[in-house]
Simulated scan of single mutants.
Amino acid sequence: MHPPQFRTRARALRARGDNIRSIARALSLPYTTVWHWCVDRPEPAVVGTAARCFRCSPTVENQTDPAAYAYLLGLYLGDGHLVTSDRVPVLRIYCSDSWPHLIEACESAMRAVLANKVQRIQKRGCVAVQSTGKHWPCLFPQHGPGKKHQRPIVLADWQREIVTAHPGHFLRGLFHSDGSRFTNRVTVRGREYVYPRYMFSNRSTDIMSLCQWALDLLGIPWRMNLPWSLSVARREAVAALDRHVGPKS
């Protein structure tokens, strides 16, 4: 009896276009066994978002854009909400009307990660960019009842691997949702200084820690000016963050 993962791997290779003989050789399995799995009794067709969920379907694991997922994860932790009480889960991210390009970027990320269809629901002062799909909970296990700052927010190991590989995209999502880049003006001994500055605000200590961690991964210095507010103000630090985030638009 072969482990189930052998059958899954064989069918994934077959879906990729490999022939039965090469699959059998690669997995050190009898030709007839692989033929039975892939030809005599092939994997049932997968439809809907199940066909695109990289957590459930190994055949799409290498087809999903991990950078887009890191960005979408940042947006979700900032201004996102996953509704699981409906018949089909709904991922909803709120984007201000002031930033039309952010709305476009959010929709593009949803489509790149899982969504077959994305809706834009106009609200007062913002747009709810949303997509229904049974497999959104697979990709955002942080969902749960109540506000995010009132419950633990911990990344799964596989999420940490993605963020470690793409910290800039993750930070871009965080700052595009709960952050800002603006011109700071201070007067010291009668002389005015003008310089750009990034701010990130979030009441969740867990999400704030994730932001700090991602900045550390990029070697970008930061400081806390309030328990829920982080600042990036050094010239070289702002320049570094500009390469990954940039101003909203």
Rank of each mutant, 00 (worst) to 15 (best):
M1L: 13
M1Y: 10
P4I: 13
P4Q: 14
P4Y: 13
R11G: 00
R11V: 00
I20Y: 02
R21C: 08
S22G: 03
A24K: 07
A24G: 08
R25F: 13
A26N: 10
L27Q: 07
P30R: 06
Y31Q: 07
V34T: 04
R41N: 12
P42T: 03
P42C: 05
P44Q: 05
A45S: 08
A50S: 10
R55I: 04
R55H: 13
C56G: 09
V60I: 08
E61A: 15
E61T: 10
N62F: 01
Q63H: 13
P66Y: 11
A67C: 07
A70S: 14
A70E: 11
Y71P: 02
L73C: 02
L73I: 13
L73A: 03
L75C: 12
Y76F: 15
L77E: 07
G78F: 15
D79F: 08
L82G: 05
L82F: 07
T84H: 05
P89V: 02
V90K: 14
R92C: 09
I93R: 09
D97E: 15
D97P: 02
D97W: 10
W99A: 10
P100S: 10
H101R: 15
I103E: 14
A105R: 15
A105Q: 14
A105S: 14
C106V: 02
A109S: 11
R111F: 01
V113W: 04
V113D: 03
L114I: 04
V118T: 06
Q119R: 06
Q119H: 07
K123G: 14
C126E: 04
A128F: 08
T132R: 15
K134I: 03
H135V: 00
W136T: 01
P137C: 03
L139R: 09
F140H: 09
P141L: 05
P141I: 10
H143A: 13
P145F: 06
G146K: 07
G146N: 06
K147W: 07
H149C: 04
I153V: 14
V154N: 10
A156Y: 04
E161N: 10
V163C: 02
P167I: 00
F170E: 00
L171T: 00
R172H: 03
G179K: 12
F182D: 03
T187R: 15
V188D: 09
R191L: 09
E192P: 05
P196R: 09
Y198E: 03
S204K: 11
I207P: 06
I207S: 04
S209P: 06
S209F: 09
C211N: 10
W213N: 11
L217I: 01
L218S: 10
G219L: 11
N225Q: 14
P227M: 07
W228F: 14
W228L: 05
V232G: 01
A233L: 11
A233H: 11
A233N: 06
A233W: 12
A237C: 02
A239S: 08
A239Q: 14
L241Y: 01
D242N: 14
V245C: 12
